[in-house]
Simulated scan of single mutants.
Amino acid sequence: MDHRLLEIVACPVCKGKLMLDKDNQELICKLDRLAYPIKDGIPVLLEPEARSLSMEEGR
């Protein structure tokens, strides 16, 4: 994923900053504890597609 894109994308729920998790190919919102998938290099920033992070993952 292009780092320039990462600088401008935001969480669709809280509008907060997203962090890239390269290992799992996800964008993480720590405020909402949600992980948005990246499919074929394209972030899927839809709340129904996000998975909830466990307490350990949300740290």
Rank of each mutant, 00 (worst) to 15 (best):
P12I: 04
K39M: 08
E49N: 11
I42V: 15
D40S: 14
M55Y: 10
I38T: 05
Q25L: 12
I8D: 00
L18T: 10
C14K: 01
M1I: 12
I28G: 03
P12H: 04
A50Y: 09
V44D: 14
D32V: 06
L5S: 08
L34I: 04
K22R: 02
P12W: 01
K17H: 10
I38D: 04
N24S: 09
D2W: 03
Q25V: 11
K39N: 06
H3Q: 13
V9P: 10
C14T: 15
S52W: 03
M19K: 07
K30N: 07
K30A: 10
L31Q: 13
E49A: 15
I38M: 00
K30W: 07
V9C: 07
L46E: 15
L31A: 12
E56D: 11
I38K: 00
E49F: 13
M55I: 13
P48T: 02
E47C: 07
I42E: 05
C29I: 08
G16D: 11
I8N: 01
K30C: 06
L20T: 02
Q25M: 11
G16K: 03
E26A: 07
E7Q: 13
L45M: 02
L20M: 10
P48Y: 03
G41H: 11
E47L: 14
I38P: 07
R33M: 00
L5H: 01
V13C: 05
C11L: 06
L5C: 02
R51I: 11
I28W: 03
L31D: 14
L18K: 05
Q25P: 08
G16Q: 01
K17C: 04
D40T: 10
I8L: 10
L5D: 07
A10K: 01
E26Q: 14
D21G: 04
L53G: 06
R4S: 15
K15H: 11
R59G: 14
S52R: 11
M55F: 10
R4W: 08
I28C: 12
S52H: 06
E56M: 02
K30P: 13
G58K: 01
I28N: 04
K15D: 04
P43M: 08
D21F: 03
E7R: 06
R33N: 03
R33G: 03
L31N: 12
D32S: 03
L5W: 09
D2G: 13
E56V: 15
R51E: 09
Y36W: 06
L53R: 00
S52E: 13
D32Y: 02
K30L: 15
C14Y: 05
E7W: 00
R33K: 11
L5P: 05
H3P: 13
D23L: 05
R33I: 00
L5M: 12
S52G: 07
K39D: 11
L45T: 05
L45E: 05
P43V: 11
L34H: 04
P37W: 03
A50C: 07
E56R: 00
M55L: 11
L53S: 01
